[in-house]
Amino acid sequence: MDRFELEFKRRLKKVSQELKQLEDLLRENGIDIPNQNIVLKSDEKIWIPTGYIRTVQYFEQKYGLYNLLGDEILAKNIEYALQASDFFNYILNRFRIGLSVEKVFYKLAIINMFSIVESLLYGITKKCHSHCQLNNGVCRNNEKCVFYIKKPNKYTFENLLKILREKKLICMPEGDQQKLLEIKGLRDNIHLWDVSNKDYFNDNYNLANYNFLVRVLQALNEDLHDTLITFEDERNSQCKKR
């Protein structure tokens, strides 16, 4: 193990001990945490280290979402969700949370990351469909055209993956596609009143599934700009919109 890594772990342990002592200090002085707390100004609280949560401008440059999706609001919303993923990443990599709260936190992190992937795919679909729109509806060739894609709300997520693969807009392996559908099932358990089992004891809320979504997002970011250009070039050269 490198010397800097040993030093990092030593300091991390020291920070952990200091945090515990802070909470012990409150209890020893009659503060019933978490029901009660010391009121702190914003600049008196613990700061997440500057630079760990990357800026919106960083994600604008890295992902080029506005150029990719042609939708400024959707691009911004995805960029804000990517910032939130940095926060989840920090907590998961720096804190031993424990109890059922750890599963809850993994669930929240997975929901956020899945929503980014989902929004990216539906955003591409929306952009492709917009080409086929006319003032009085859609192009009359619609289903007869190999380049036609319906409105995003006409597809289930499973069908969306299928159509995007058929149109060669995504190059996702079959196994990854199936895994993504399984994780969608985890995401859909968002309503506590409608979950029939002990959802937070589900072992699928874990680092492996979170990291899988991170890898999927990275692959989409690498592929979509090129596949969309190819799709649009071929479509535009053959388009008979009317």
Rank of each mutant, 00 (worst) to 15 (best):
S16Q: 13
E5I: 14
K150F: 07
D194M: 11
V15F: 03
L26T: 00
K20P: 08
Q61V: 00
V101D: 15
N77V: 14
Q21K: 10
E174V: 00
Q177G: 03
K41F: 14
D43G: 03
K13Y: 10
L192K: 05
E72C: 02
S42Q: 13
Y210I: 06
K127T: 06
L217N: 05
E79M: 12
N236W: 08
K126T: 09
Y210L: 14
Y80C: 01
T156D: 04
Q133I: 13
F105S: 09
Y58E: 05
K162R: 10
D226F: 12
E143I: 06
C171N: 15
G51S: 08
I116N: 08
N206A: 01
N204E: 06
L121T: 12
K241R: 14
V39F: 12
N112A: 05
R187I: 04
I170E: 04
Y155V: 10
F4I: 13
F201S: 14
S237P: 08
F212A: 13
K240Y: 03
V39H: 00
R215I: 10
A109I: 04
Y148Q: 05
L134S: 08
L217F: 11
N89K: 07
I97Q: 01
N142D: 15
K127G: 02
L220N: 00
Y200A: 00
K198I: 06
E234T: 15
L164M: 05
G137Y: 07
F147Y: 10
K126W: 06
T156C: 01
W47Y: 12
Y155S: 04
E234G: 05
F114P: 06
E44V: 15
S196P: 03
I46E: 00
K9D: 07
N89I: 00
N112R: 01
I110R: 11
V15Y: 04
K76V: 10
I111T: 07
V195Q: 11
D43F: 13
R94V: 15
G175M: 09
G175K: 12
Y106D: 06
V101K: 14
Y66M: 09
M172H: 09
I229C: 01
Y205L: 01
R215N: 15
A208G: 11
R10S: 11
F4D: 09
V138R: 04
L217M: 08
E232S: 03
K179V: 02
K107D: 00
K107S: 07
G70M: 07
L181A: 08
N135V: 05
I190T: 10
E174L: 10
L186K: 14
N189E: 14
L220C: 03
V15D: 02
I48F: 01
I183R: 13
L213E: 00
N37D: 13
E28C: 06
R27L: 15
L65I: 09
K41R: 13
C239W: 09
Y200F: 11
K179N: 11
H129V: 13
N153I: 09
G175T: 10
N211H: 03
N136M: 13
M1K: 14
Y90L: 07
Q57A: 14
S42L: 12
L19H: 03
E60T: 00
I124K: 00
L228C: 04
N202T: 00
L160I: 15
L26C: 08
Y52H: 10
Y155Q: 05
K168Q: 07
I53L: 06
D32Y: 05
